Simulated assay, not measured.
Amino acid sequence: MVFVSVIIPSAGRRPELLHRAIKSALVDDEQIKTEIIVVLNGRDGMDFDTSQSFQHRLVTYYKIEQGSVSKARNYGLSVAQGELIRFLDDDDFLIPDMAYQQYTELYHSNAELSTYAGAIEDDQTRYQVIVPINTDDYYSAVMSANCPSLTFASVYKKKIVGIVRWNEESHIAEDEEWMRKLSYVGELKWIRNTLCVGVWFQHQHSRLSFKLGHPLYYKNRAESISELVEYLASKNDLTLSRKKYAAQGLWSAIHGGFHFSPIYWSRKIIQVRELDKGSMPDIKIFQHTAFIHPLFMEWLLIPLRWGSRIIKSLLINFNKKSYIRRPRLPTNDESFD
C-alpha cells in the first residue's frame, strides 16, 4: 500500500475552498491512503474552528501562531509520515483519478519526483493548461524560464524532500526556489506527464502572496538561478545545454524586472551574455531586432513598459479581474539538448 502525505497550508480565511481542497486530495482504499495535513497559520488560522471543517480519520489539523506559507509547509513536512509528499494550496484542488495515477506511477518507478500538468480556472472558464517543460534534465528544467513550480503538480519521494526545507524568509517566487533547492541533492530522476492533475483556482479572495508582476519576483528568480549556475560550474556540471536553459530563465527575469531597476538589471544582462553570448529575451521584438544589443533595447522599451503597466492597472481596477494569471505556456520544441 502507498501512503501519501498531502500538506495543505491555510490561513483559515477560505473555509469552503479548504473543504474542496481536502476532499479532492483524500484517498482511502486498499492501494493508496493519503494523510491530509492541514497547517493553519496566523491570527485567522489560530481562530479557525476545525470542528466545523472537513472531518475524516485521515485528516489532521495543526495550528502555528506565526509564519508564512513556507513555514506552514515546513511544519507539515516535519510531521508527515507518507512515503510520498505533495503540497496543495487551500484554494486549489486535485483531479482525484489523475492524482491516483501519479502516486502509483512514481511509487513503482526509480524516479525521485513526478510533475504533471495543471489547469488555470475560475468558476466558468479554463484559461490555460501548464505542462512541464520538455526536457528530461531536471537542472535544465528548474533553471529555465518555465521552471515546473506549480505547487500541486509535483509529488516527491520523502527520501528527497526530507532533507530540504522551504525558505521561510521568502514570500515571492518561493515555489521556484524550492524546486531549485531540490536539485542540490544531486542528479534527480524526473517523471514528466502532460495529463492534468489539478486546478490552480483563480478567485477574488485576498491572496497570501504578491502578484507575479512584483519587482521582487524577478529578483528572487534571477538570484536563485544564478546561485544554481555557480554551484553547477563549481562541480564542472554546467553543460552547454544547461547554460542555454539558465540564460533563458535569467532573461525572463531581466525582461520582467528591467523597468523597475534598470541599473541592477543592466549588470545582469552583461552576466547572462557571458553565460550565453547570443541569448536574448524570448520576445518577438527582440527577435526582429537581433542586430541591436538587447541591453540597448531594454533601455529603449522602458517608457513603453511603464505605459503598458499603467494601462493594465487601470483596466484591472475597472474590470475587477486582478486575480487572473496567464503564465507563458512552454512549447513542445523548447529544448536545447
Rank of each mutant, 00 (worst) to 15 (best):
M1W: 02
M1P: 11
V2S: 03
S5P: 12
L18T: 07
R20F: 07
A25E: 02
A25Y: 07
E30W: 03
I32G: 04
I32E: 02
T34E: 04
T34N: 14
E35D: 11
I36C: 07
V39A: 05
L40N: 11
D47N: 14
Q52P: 00
F54S: 08
Q55K: 15
T60M: 08
T60H: 15
Y61K: 10
Y62C: 13
K63Q: 11
I64R: 00
E65T: 09
G67A: 05
V69G: 03
S70Q: 15
S70H: 09
K71G: 04
A72N: 10
N74C: 02
L77A: 06
S78A: 06
V79N: 06
G82K: 06
I85R: 06
I85W: 00
D91T: 03
D92M: 03
F93N: 02
I95R: 06
P96G: 02
P96H: 00
Q101N: 08
Y103C: 09
H108T: 10
N110G: 05
E112T: 10
S114Y: 14
S114K: 06
A117S: 10
Q124I: 04
Q128T: 13
I130C: 13
I130K: 02
I133C: 08
I133G: 03
D137G: 02
D137A: 01
D137L: 00
Y138S: 13
Y139A: 13
A141I: 03
A141D: 03
N146R: 10
S149H: 05
F152R: 12
F152K: 10
A153T: 11
S154N: 08
S154G: 08
K159V: 10
K159D: 14
V161S: 06
G162Y: 09
N167V: 11
A173F: 11
W178S: 01
K181T: 08
L182I: 06
L182W: 01
L188C: 09
W190N: 02
T194H: 03
T194C: 02
V197E: 05
V197Y: 01
G198T: 02
Q202I: 00
Q204W: 02
S209F: 04
F210I: 00
K211M: 07
G213K: 03
L216Q: 14
K219T: 07
A233N: 13
T239Y: 00
S241N: 12
A246V: 11
A253S: 13
W265F: 13
W265G: 00
S266F: 02
K268S: 08
Q271K: 08
Q271M: 11
V272E: 01
E274K: 12
L275V: 10
M280Y: 07
M280L: 12
F286D: 08
Q287L: 13
Q287D: 11
F291C: 04
H293K: 05
L295P: 06
E298H: 15
E298M: 14
W299N: 01
L301E: 01
P303I: 07
R305M: 14
S308E: 14
L315H: 10
N317Q: 10
F318A: 04
N319D: 04
S322N: 14
I324A: 08
R326F: 08
R326H: 04
R326Y: 12
R328L: 13
T331Y: 00
F336M: 05
